[in-house]
Computed example of a mutant assay.
Amino acid sequence: MDVIDARIERIITASAHAPSVHNTQPWRVELEGNRMLVHADPSRQLRHSDPAGREMYISCGAFLFNVRTSARRESLTAQATILPSPHDKLHVASIRFDPALGPDMDELELSVAIDRRATSRTPFDDQPLDSDVLLEIQMAARDEGADLHLIHPSDPTRSNVLTLVRRAEALAGEDAVARGEEAAWTATTAARHDGIPQDLLGPSATDEQAPVRHFLASGGDAEFEHRSTMAVLSTPDDTPRDWIAAGEALEHLLLVATTYFVHASFATTVLENPTTRHDLRRALSLDGWPQMLMRMGYSATHPHTPRRTIEEIVAPGEPETAAE
């Protein structure tokens, strides 16, 4: 690999801290002068659970938001063109870096939050988020063209949502291919630079009304909170462009949450099943399409999942193209 400009190397390293489904990190980068080409990596797609690549594109959108944010820390602007090639569905974005003034305080705070953000799969404090924090988190999602529907502890739809989550997990548990796919990316060894290690899967909840995802390889049981805030991130439509926007919105709101010491965990199984995804949309009377379900709360700092190296992310040559 050619020598990479130090600023671009720092941008890529920071951007790779983006959240991704099962920590698959399904992004691939090419560099051309002051341009970065971001591609989705189909070899890291969950082919069974995510056949259309929705979660893969969301993950790449989160990576893209980190590129934009970390570029400002380097006194650069990242001008992104989304899905620039009609013939290459995996070409997520072309980014041009231009010199700019240094970051303002808000930009700097977000860029610092990139390294601090971590998904938490352990119990949160048993309280909802403060209203002013929730407002800022919602505004962050809207800045990227998405909406964040809040499900408060007293919301009567909350039990319906949790019932759908458990139903989707039960159906996935009966699916041998789905179980195998999850096993390939969870309870991973220390030698892996991706996936979720066993000690970071978190425990299973002791009751069905706890707002937490159950992994097949989760270790032990624990009592989870019941009054944390739940939220559904949605977009106006349900196309790859919307999925990328959902990823950018997700990372933006997560970084804002991190500045308030708020963590999040995700329940994606309910959105991977077309039936339960439809039922979730109907239960919440959403105008848009649900792209992510999460719980958010206050907790201690959580360890980070492993990340791939620069050499594994930046690759020369032509990217693999998506099948029609």
Rank of each mutant, 00 (worst) to 15 (best):
219 G>F: 08
174 E>D: 14
195 G>D: 01
209 Q>L: 15
185 W>Y: 04
199 D>P: 06
180 G>M: 09
216 L>K: 05
187 A>C: 15
208 E>W: 03
184 A>P: 02
221 D>M: 11
200 L>F: 02
220 G>R: 06
177 V>D: 07
212 V>M: 05
211 P>K: 03
187 A>N: 15
218 S>V: 10
171 L>R: 02
212 V>E: 08
173 G>W: 01
198 Q>R: 12
179 R>T: 08
204 S>D: 11
211 P>I: 03
200 L>A: 14
199 D>S: 10
198 Q>K: 09
171 L>W: 10
206 T>E: 03
202 G>M: 06
202 G>C: 00
171 L>D: 09
193 H>Q: 13
195 G>I: 07
209 Q>E: 15
181 E>P: 11
171 L>G: 01
173 G>H: 03
208 E>L: 14
180 G>N: 15
191 A>G: 10
181 E>N: 07
184 A>L: 15
193 H>C: 11
194 D>F: 00
205 A>G: 13
183 A>S: 14
220 G>C: 03
188 T>H: 00
193 H>F: 05
200 L>Q: 13
204 S>E: 12
184 A>S: 15
171 L>P: 01
218 S>I: 09
179 R>Y: 05
203 P>N: 03
213 R>C: 15
173 G>N: 15
173 G>I: 08
189 T>G: 13
210 A>V: 15
206 T>R: 04
202 G>Q: 09
209 Q>I: 12
207 D>K: 13
202 G>K: 03
213 R>L: 15
224 F>V: 13
187 A>T: 02
225 E>K: 00
195 G>H: 03
